[in-house]
Amino acid sequence: MYEPIRAKSVHTMAGTADFPHRSREEELDIQLAGHLAALLTVTDELRGLAPSADLEVAAERLAEQVARLRGGRPPAHSSRAADDEPRVAALHQRAHTLAGRALVVAASRADTAAAILSAERMDAHAAAAEPHALTSH
Rank of each mutant, 00 (worst) to 15 (best):
A50I: 07
L49S: 06
L28A: 07
E56P: 01
F19V: 10
H77D: 03
S78H: 10
D54K: 12
D18M: 02
R70F: 00
A82V: 14
S108G: 11
V57F: 03
A106H: 05
L91A: 11
P51A: 15
D54V: 11
H96T: 11
T12E: 12
E27R: 15
L55M: 12
F19Y: 09
L40G: 04
E56W: 03
H21L: 10
G71T: 07
I30R: 06
R73P: 00
G72T: 05
R109N: 04
L39A: 15
G15T: 02
G15A: 09
G15K: 02
L46Q: 09
V88C: 01
S108R: 14
R80E: 14
G15Y: 02
E25K: 05
R47D: 03
P75D: 00
T97L: 04
S52Q: 13
A33E: 01
A107E: 15
A53M: 13
E60Y: 04
G15N: 08
L103S: 12
D29G: 12
S23L: 03
L36Q: 04
E27G: 05
A113V: 15
A67P: 01
V104D: 10
T16S: 06
R47C: 11
D18L: 10
E27L: 10
G100T: 08
A50T: 11
R22F: 03
L69T: 04
T41W: 02
A50P: 00
V57P: 00
E85Q: 14
I30L: 08
L98F: 13
S52D: 09
E64F: 05
F19H: 12
G15I: 07
R94M: 03
R87C: 01
H92D: 13
M13Y: 05
R80A: 15
L39H: 03
S78I: 12
E27M: 10
T43A: 13
E25N: 11
A63N: 02
A95E: 04
T97K: 07
P20G: 01
E60D: 14
T16E: 10
R109I: 08
R70N: 15
R94I: 06
E45I: 07
A110C: 06
H92W: 14
E26H: 13
V66W: 02
L40Y: 03
E45D: 15
V42G: 05
R70K: 07
P75N: 04
A107P: 00
A17F: 10
R47G: 09
L32I: 03
S23A: 08
L98S: 11
R80I: 04
G100M: 10
Q93W: 10
V104C: 01
A50H: 06
R47Q: 11
S108Y: 07
T112V: 15
H35P: 01
H92V: 01
L49G: 08
